[in-house]
Design a protein around this nucleic acid. Structure first.
Lengths: 126, 126
DNA sequence: CCAACCTTGACACAGCTTTGATAAGGTTGT
DNA sequence: ACAACCTTATCAAAGCTGTGTCAAGGTTGG
């Protein structure tokens, strides 16, 4: 036996067994099962359970939000529909020039990397 | 002057004034205001209100879901964090080498003990 | 100046989400 | 063979979402 049971996994990750089942039910983490149906949490799942906790805490989001993000990623039609609805959003302070927009897009990637590789709040306050 | 008041906008879009205020509160559609604070719905907003209805109905999602998608789009750090968490999704026990597994097993007990002594919110075994 | 709008704020309620507890029964290791 | 796990299903409670309605007061147009 190389995987942890649900109680062991709960203990090492800080969740409760109940929540582990719930997290499975909403499709976030689905551990393998033994012949007889016992859940088996492997190292990958344990790691993801821990980072999931951090994700929720650091950004004040809920499990349902992550589940929705997953749904977006799996349902291309939905993703496109939502995205194109948001795309039309005329909320920007003022219409930016094509130049500014291009630059924004180019810097976007760098900002994401930065956000992921630093633990600090990025105060690149424009 | 071609902007509609909240009641007029509600009637032409199928929402209620109450919901239009709610939709504004969660950041989805924020109409301009007159000097005295009256909401002014323009053609663009009316169109978006109608397509928002379709979006929700066609994909069985809620306003909160769209609000979250908007948040993702505005908060790059959050978007990156969620995305990278989901990225690791296909991780399964067998993706981990036997070496790592062995080490994991050896440390398992210590981890559980540590988790128990540093996190007393889980006094299960009730 | 008055009716008919608008504003924000609050109370209310159904329904869904999140989480716990408990029951009835199967699996496992010693 | 028995304790200590595991499973699913169900009941329950706290909290959030979506929505209506009403109140107190400001704005507007005829």
């Amino acid at each position: 036996m190389e995987a942890l049971t649900i109680h062991e996994a709960a203990q090492t990750t800080g969740w409760t067994p109940r929540m582990l089942r719930y997290i499975e039910r909403i499709g976030l983490i689905e551990p393998a099962r033994t012949e007889s149906g016992y859940r088996q949490y492997g190292a990958g799942e344990l790691q993801r359970l821990r980072t999931l906790r951090e994700l929720l805490a650091e950004h004040e989001i809920g499990l349902g939000d992550v589940a929705f993000a997953l749904r977006l990623r799996r349902d291309e039609a939905l993703d496109g529909a939502v995205d194109s609805w948001l795309e039309a959003e005329p909320q920007r302070p003022e219409t930016v020039s094509a130049d500014e927009w291009l630059r924004w897009e180019q810097e976007k990637h760098a900002r994401i990397i930065a956000a992921l590789t630093t633990n600090e709040t990025m105060e690149t306050a424009a």
